[in-house]
Structures are given as structure tokens and as C-alpha cells.
């Protein structure tokens, strides 16, 4: 009887399903390849978009005293590097966070991580104003970590852990933290700095002022090394423990990584809304939730998304610039609403 039942289970069209499997794999690789090619082309173009008219020929002359060449080296290249590093790192941080917390709508910007980082920066500037950027950043990291853990503690106490309610609570929590930051900033005359941290913007990215971002590039690499562990933790505690994964260590280590990346990005470019939420969701929707498999595509798509938004921010009101945060916010917000509606209609 058992053999019979197993025979019955076999059913279907094995070859057809094998074919769709290959198609899926191929599709994933082609998509990532196409995105990478598009990223390279867009990145190249972005180097020659801006108020100063710089052409590839100017750069080829390699004359350091030349104004165009200096703009290229001092501003355009750093800006591009900052965009690629911040865009990919924030998207990957979002991917890790939604996996660890097991909720697709929880990202650094909807869990209070980013707001807590900016509160940390305000506090650091008020009380350690003369300290080095590293100390200020460390304080921001501690705040980001504490804020994230506080949010998780809040969620664990909630009786109603609906997939949408959890990030809504996170957004409200972030709002409260942000209000505290604004109050302090107002009192100590730091509103301008706070604004720079809240509104992501690459227009101030110059050589010597963005290099901290290489740190998040390195952290994204570290994330890839632990990708499998993050997926396993996302499958639940029992599942992870069975496979010999140290659940708590990976969970909190991962959140630490996310807080670190968020804080560094806030310090250098400011917060980029919805990035860590929208990009991983769109990528995992097409490629699945295996972190190791989707991480490269997430990093590439995140960089591409921010780069396109930044080019728009440079050209939409030429010769003036719109903060890139606003463009990402509008585009990302639309996608976010679409994702929420979709998850509702599918009754997840």
C-alpha cells in the first residue's frame, strides 16, 4: 500500500517540472547579469552628468591641474563609489533583517534602526562634539543596536503580530525616536546636521568624506559569508538548532551587522527611505528567499536603484539638485504600497 501511495504521488510531468526549474535558475542568472550590465553602463554615464561639463575626453587627458579632471576625481568618482556602496549595503542589510525577523516588511527604516542611529549622532554631537568621527559613529551604532533590540522586545510583547502591524509599530517607534532627536537637535541648534542625516543626499560626497563607506562594502562581504546561517535562522529556532547553528549568536550578530551598516550610511550620506525594504522584497519575490542565492542580485539591484534615483535627482531640476532621499522616497513608497496590497490580496 505504501509503495502504491508513493507511486501515486509521483504523478505529473517530471521533465516539464525539471525544465521550469532550469528556466527559473537561468532566469535568475540572466536577471542578475542584465542588472549588472545595466549597472555598469549607468555608472559610466553617471560620471559625466552634473553641473560641470565633464566628458570622457577631458578625463583621458589626465591633466591634474585641469578643472574637469579635478571635478572628476574629487567629486564624480567619490559620488559614484558612495552610491554603489551605500545602495548595495542598505539593500543587503534590509534582506538580512527581513530574514532574521521573519517579516518581509521589517527593514532598518521600519524598525527604528535608522532613527535610533540619527538620535545617537545628535547625542554624540551634543556631548562629544569634539570627538573623532569614529567615536560619534560608534555611539550611533550603539544607539541603532539598542533601538533595534527595543523594537524586537516590543514586538515580542505584542499579541497581534500581523505581518503589516509589526512594521507599522516599527514606523511609529521610529517616529518617536526621531521626535526625540528633533527635540534635542532643536534645543542644541543642530537641526541642520540632523536634516543632513535624515535626508540622504550624495551632493556633498567628496574625496576624503565618504571613505568610511568602504567599511560597509566590507560588511556586505561578511554578510555573504554568513548568508546560509541567516537563511537557517530565518527558518526558525528549532530548525537552526537542529543543523548545529548557534541561533542567538547568529540572530544578534546579524542585527549588529545591520545596525552597523545603517549607522555608517546615516553618518556619511543620510537615511535613504524604503531602500532596505523595497529592493530585497522585489528581488526575493522573483528569486526566492535563499539569502546566499539572492544576495548578489540584491546588492546589484540596490546599487542600480539608488544610482538611477541619484541621476534623476541631478537632472530633474537641472542645474539644481533634489535630495536623492526624496526621489527614492517617492519611488520606493509607491512600490511599498503595491507590495502591501499584494501581500494582503494573497492573504499571507
Amino acid at each position: 500500500m505504501v509503495a502504491e501511495a508513493r507511486q501515486g504521488l509521483r504523478g505529473g510531468w517530471p521533465t516539464a517540472s525539471k525544465l521550469t526549474g532550469w528556466a527559473r535558475k537561468l532566469e535568475g542568472r540572466t536577471l542578475a547579469g542584465a542588472a549588472l550590465a545595466l549597472l555598469v553602463v549607468t555608472a559610466f554615464c553617471s560620471l559625466f552628468i552634473g553641473v560641470s561639463n565633464v566628458t570622457p575626453l577631458d578625463v583621458l587627458r589626465l591633466d591634474n591641474s585641469d578643472h574637469q579632471t579635478r571635478v572628476f576625481i574629487e567629486s564624480r568618482v567619490p559620488r559614484l563609489a558612495a552610491i554603489l556602496l551605500a545602495g548595495s549595503a542598505m539593500s543587503v542589510a534590509g534582506l538580512v533583517m527581513q530574514t532574521l525577523v521573519r517579516n518581509r516588511f521589517v527593514a532598518p527604516s521600519t524598525a527604528g534602526t535608522v532613527s535610533s542611529a540619527s538620535l545617537g549622532l545628535v547625542v554624540a554631537t551634543i556631548w562629544f562634539g569634539s570627538a573623532s568621527i569614529f567615536l560619534k559613529m560608534s555611539i550611533a551604532v550603539l544607539f541603532a543596536m539598542a533601538g533595534t533590540l527595543l523594537f524586537l522586545a516590543l514586538v515580542q510583547r505584542m499579541k497581534h503580530t500581523d505581518i503589516i502591524v509589526v512594521p507599522l509599530v516599527g514606523i511609529m517607534f521610529g517616529g518617536v525616536v526621531q521626535a526625540a532627536a528633533t527635540f534635542l537637535a532643536f534645543k542644541y541648534d543642530l537641526l541642520q546636521s540632523l536634516n543632513a542625516w535624515i535626508n540622504g543626499d550624495f551632493s556633498g560626497t567628496l574625496r576624503g568624506r565618504y571613505e568610511l563607506l568602504y567599511l560597509v562594502g566590507g560588511l556586505t562581504g561578511v554578510t555573504y559569508l554568513f548568508a546560509n546561517r541567516f537563511t537557517l535562522v530565518g527558518m526558525g529556532r528549532d530548525f537552526a538548532v537542529n543543523l548545529g547553528v548557534h541561533y542567538e549568536r547568529v540572530l544578534y550578530g546579524g542585527l549588529c551587522l545591520v545596525s552597523l551598516v545603517s549607522a555608517v550610511v546615516v553618518v556619511v550620506v543620510g537615511s535613504i527611505p524604503f531602500l532596505g525594504l523595497v529592493v530585497p522584497n522585489v528581488v526575493t519575490m522573483t528569486m526566492g528567499d535563499n539569502v546566499r542565492r539572492v544576495l548578489p542580485a540584491t546588492a546589484i539591484s540596490g546599487a542600480l536603484f539608488v544610482l538611477v534615483c541619484d541621476i534623476l535627482s541631478r537632472t530633474i531640476r537641472y542645474p539644481y539638485e533634489v535630495p536623492v532621499g526624496s526621489i527614492v522616497g517617492v519611488g520606493g513608497g509607491v512600490v511599498f504600497i503595491f507590495l502591501v496590497l499584494r501581500s494582503r490580496s494573497f492573504g499571507s
Partner: peptide, 18 residues
């Protein structure tokens, strides 16, 4: 067991080798 995670059967079985 978590079923909301979108991984394939093969990917799941591969985790057994972790």
C-alpha cells in the same frame, strides 16, 4: 515548520548538509 520561506525542495534538502 516555517512554510512562508520561499525556497525550493532541493534548497531545503541541501541545508541538511550544513
Amino acid at each position: 515548520n516555517q512554510v512562508a520561506v520561499r525556497i525550493t525542495v532541493r534548497e531545503l534538502v541541501e541545508f541538511g548538509r550544513f
